[in-house]
Design a protein around this nucleic acid. Structure first.
Length: 323
RNA sequence: GCCGAGAUAGCUCAGCUGGUAGAGCACGCGACUGAAAAUUGCGGUGUCCCCAGUUCGAUCCUGGGUCUCGGCA
């Protein structure tokens, strides 16, 4: 059996503020594991409070990967994450440890667990800017029509006003001369997977978020943002689209109040939680869900023990499921 | 107590000369293959404060009541 030779990977997913950090730390300790972060906001140095980054003390007990690995001015991407994550996982396997891929960035997790092979065309900022300008003048729909002529299959899958995705598709087509829809590949992931989903009832999640936002401010979120701005981190950088940072920048500039910032953060975080649920669905048969309001870590651990000792793919339905 | 304004979706409010109602936000559901904590599509919701009257028909007009807000006492 080919599958039996595949190295194991534990994936831990769930919405923001569900408690992934705490649980995954305990699990990694229990199983002598290391954590690979699958969170698009934890790469950046100096963005700690607003991103709810695991504390240094927490990271001391278990090795962490892909946290604090770049400056806030850098732009990450799906492909870069995929490569870095694969590297980190491989090195963990190489020294005989169990890797835990932990995070809430749905697209990034999927890329790993579903073996996505995005088109190999890197972003072209100049072309993107050009297309953005064109969209401003002629409207996003016009670009979408253009895409529809070049690649109807891609256009059908992208909402006509979704400029981001329309531009990416056009970018790939222009730079390769081939259709975008024909350049998205998919392989079997090279791991034996166990995906664990952590959840809590929405109302609980929402009130945890509210409490967390309050704590962020007491812990100095405004100072953190002030520091970033003073270091020349422009609010335009992708890293600054992290929830709360621009809101805090507005407070610092006297454009809004702290209460307004908090309220905005509460709203946006709730919307974020709902969007995350689109990637991690309770109905997904490949995810083993645990409601942290009513399960103990012991139950999760025994699931992982069973997985680790079984050596088979019985836990992993990803392989069988086509889509 | 008097005068004025108001009472419509969970919230803030819109509703032309009477034909049982709508926008934003919230909330729910979806898409996502090198910017993803990004970007984006779809959706439901209502004793139109209560009672009576006029009318073929009242959220809208008339009378009464209740409550809220402001001003004056």
């Amino acid at each position: 059996m080919v599958e039996q030779s595949l190295p194991p990977l534990i994936v831990i997913v769930g919405p923001t503020a569900v408690g992934k950090t705490e649980v995954s730390l305990h699990l990694a300790e229990e199983f002598d594991g290391e954590i690979v972060s699958a969170d698009s906001r934890l790469f950046y140095k100096g963005m700690d409070i607003g991103t709810a980054k695991p504390l240094l003390e927490e990271r001391a007990s278990v090795p962490h990967h892909l946290i604090d690995v770049s400056e806030p001015g850098e732009t990450w991407s799906l492909a870069r994450f995929q490569q870095e994550a694969a590297k980190a996982i491989a090195s963990i396997h190489a020294h005989g440890k169990l890797p835990f891929l932990v995070g809430g960035s749905g697209q990034y997790i999927h890329a790993v667990t579903h073996g996505w092979m995005p088109p190999i065309i890197p972003p072209n900022p100049i072309l993107r800017k050009e297309l953005e300008t064109q969209a401003e003048i002629e409207g996003a729909e016009r670009l979408h029509e253009e895409l529809n002529k070049l690649d109807p299959a891609a256009a059908e899958k992208i909402d006509s006003r979704n400029l981001r995705r329309t531009i990416r598709a056009l970018e790939v087509i222009r730079l390769t001369g081939r259709k975008f829809s024909e350049q998205r590949g998919r392989l079997q992931p090279p791991y034996r997977l166990l995906t664990i989903g952590l959840t809590r009832p929405r109302p609980t999640l929402y009130s945890r978020v509210d409490a967390r936002i309050e704590a962020m401010f007491t812990n100095g979120l405004l100072d953190e943002v002030r520091g970033l701005l003073e270091n020349g981190i422009s609010p335009d950088f992708p890293a600054m689209t992290s929830i709360g940072y621009r809101d805090c920048a507005a407070v610092l500039q006297g454009k809004s109040t702290m209460e307004e910032a908090k309220a905005q953060m509460r709203r946006v975080t709730r919307v974020f939680i709902r969007r995350q649920a689109n990637w991690f669905k309770l109905s997904d048969p490949t995810i083993h869900w645990f409601d942290l309001e009513q399960t103990t870590e012991k139950e999760i651990k025994s699931k992982i023990y069973a997985f680790r000792d079984s050596q088979s793919n019985e836990f992993d339905t990803t392989i069988q499921t086509g889509e």
